[in-house]
Computed example of a mutant assay.
Amino acid sequence: MSLTLVAVAGAAAAQQATPDDKQKLVQKVLALWHLEDTAIVMVQRPAANALQQARIALQGRVSAAKQEATLRGIASDLQQYVDEATPIVRDNAQRLKAPTVGPLLVQNFSDDELRQLIALLESPVKKKFEQLVPQFERSFGEKIAAESRAAIDPKLQAMTQAVGLTLRTATMTP
């Protein structure tokens, strides 16, 4: 009978240790996974979009020198926004990452899967690949631009002129 109690107590202890072990695995995944970068991109995207829209709005309406000066001023305002908003979002993302994503990791991954995920996130090959991604994207983008420029530039110019004409008409009509 005491042997049975020891076996039951041992099994209970093993079951209790598993959630702690799993939680440690989840914490390791969260430490390795820079999910807060997604939040930072979310904050910075409106600034990039605003600059692109300003560039389009100014194109053909003002001289190149005035366009450049105006865009520099806008870029300064946008950079101020990014500089102020990024730390807020980064801090909130760090604070909310574990309580938001942690339970989902616990629910959807086994201990073994979490260990595999950690191995993947710690992989030197993954790190090397991520370091090279900007170079790959730049090279690919340059090649696509070079191959597509002749066909795309006239369409881009026509679109820009059409939008500009529509904007001018809308702003001139009472």
Rank of each mutant, 00 (worst) to 15 (best):
M1L: 14
M1Q: 12
S2W: 10
S2H: 04
L3R: 11
T4E: 05
V6S: 09
A7D: 07
A7Q: 08
G10Y: 14
A11M: 05
A13R: 15
A14L: 13
A14W: 10
A17H: 12
P19I: 01
D20I: 01
Q23R: 07
K24D: 02
L25T: 03
Q27L: 14
V29A: 00
V29T: 00
A31P: 10
A31Y: 15
A31L: 15
T38L: 15
A39N: 08
I40C: 09
V41H: 09
V41I: 10
V41T: 08
M42A: 12
M42W: 11
R45V: 00
P46F: 10
A47K: 03
A47L: 09
A50W: 05
A50L: 08
A50T: 05
A50R: 03
Q52S: 14
Q52Y: 12
A54W: 07
A54Q: 09
R55E: 10
A57G: 06
A57K: 02
G60T: 04
R61A: 05
R61I: 08
A64K: 09
K66C: 12
E68T: 08
E68R: 09
A69R: 11
A69D: 11
L71V: 14
L71F: 13
R72A: 14
G73R: 15
I74Q: 09
A75S: 11
Q79M: 03
Q80V: 08
V82H: 01
D83M: 11
A85Y: 00
T86A: 11
I88E: 00
I88V: 06
V89D: 06
N92V: 08
N92G: 03
R95G: 00
K97E: 04
A98K: 04
A98N: 02
P99N: 15
V101F: 15
V106H: 01
Q107C: 05
N108C: 06
N108G: 08
F109C: 00
D111W: 10
E113R: 09
Q116P: 00
L120K: 00
L121K: 12
E122R: 05
E122S: 05
V125R: 10
K126T: 03
K128H: 10
F129D: 02
F129E: 00
E130N: 07
Q131P: 04
V133Y: 09
V133K: 13
P134R: 06
F136A: 10
E137R: 02
S139G: 00
S139D: 00
F140T: 13
F140R: 12
E142C: 06
E142T: 12
E142V: 02
A146R: 06
A146Y: 03
E147G: 06
S148W: 01
A150N: 11
A150H: 12
A151M: 13
I152C: 09
P154W: 15
P154I: 11
K155F: 07
L156W: 05
Q161F: 04
A162F: 07
A162E: 07
V163Q: 06
G164K: 03
T166A: 12
T166L: 12
L167S: 06
L167H: 01
L167Y: 10
R168E: 12
A170D: 00
M172T: 13
M172I: 07
M172C: 06
P174M: 14
P174L: 14
